[in-house]
Structure formats: structure tokens, C-alpha cells
Simulated assay, not measured.
Amino acid sequence: MRDLLKGTLGRSLAGLSEEDRLAAAWPVACGKAMAEHGTVVGYAEGVVWVEVVDVAWLRQLMSMRGQLAREMARIAGVKVTEIHFESKRNDRR
């Protein structure tokens, strides 16, 4: 079922900008629970920027960087060569 949803989502995103397509693909690529800890904030020339709620989640997402890049590219139909994660500036933990 999840694969069916991924394919359907990819087709329905065709009219959006590349960044919007990647933002919509984010929760599908990494799952709703994990997606709540990061937000796609930019995209240029194959690089996706994701702002992460704190350093602990930054480490977790970085460990999955390659897998997430492949899934986001496949779902959104956008070239993704790298994901750059950064912690929110107001993270004071």
C-alpha cells in the first residue's frame, strides 16, 4: 500500500515547484513521526536543505541521509544528490 501511495503522490505533484514537491515527499520518504522533526526549507541544484528541531534528530537523520535522498528523489521526481541537515538556530539544548 505504501508503494502505491508513493507512486500516486509523485504523479499528483507534477504541477508544483521542485522544492514544494520535495516538501510534500518528505513525510512519505521518512515516515510521519520522523518527518515532524524536520522541514524542507530549500532546494537548489540537487541539494535539499532540511531544518531539524534539535541536534539529536540531526544525528538520526544524517545517519539515514542516503536512503532519504533516494526516496525523496523517487517520490518527487526531482534530482537529489545530497541532503544538507541543519539544526534550528533557536536550539538551545
Rank of each mutant, 00 (worst) to 15 (best):
L58Q: 11
V53M: 07
C30S: 08
M72H: 03
E45C: 10
S17M: 05
E36M: 11
R21H: 07
S12F: 08
V53F: 01
L61R: 03
G77K: 05
R70H: 11
M34W: 10
G42T: 10
H84F: 12
R11P: 01
R89C: 06
D54L: 07
L16E: 07
A56C: 09
R21M: 04
I83D: 01
N90A: 12
G10R: 07
E51L: 04
R92D: 10
Q60C: 06
T39K: 14
M64S: 08
A35H: 02
L61D: 04
G10C: 06
G15F: 09
Y43G: 02
G15C: 08
M1A: 14
A44N: 13
V48W: 00
D3C: 04
S12N: 09
V55I: 10
R70D: 15
V52I: 13
Q67M: 13
V48G: 02
Q60K: 15
G31Y: 08
G10E: 02
A35D: 03
E36W: 06
V48M: 02
W49F: 09
L68Q: 02
I75F: 04
A29F: 03
A73S: 15
I83A: 05
L61G: 05
G46M: 04
H84P: 01
A24P: 02
V47D: 04
T81R: 15
G66Y: 06
A24Y: 02
L61K: 04
E71Y: 07
A69D: 06
M62S: 14
M1Q: 12
M72Q: 03
G46I: 05
T39A: 13
L4D: 09
V28Y: 09
R89W: 08
V48D: 03
I75S: 01
E45H: 11
E45W: 04
G7D: 10
G38T: 05
A25V: 01
D3W: 08
G7Y: 05
D54R: 06
Q60N: 11
H37C: 06
A14Q: 14
S87R: 12
C30N: 06
D3I: 06
M64I: 02
L9K: 06
S63P: 02
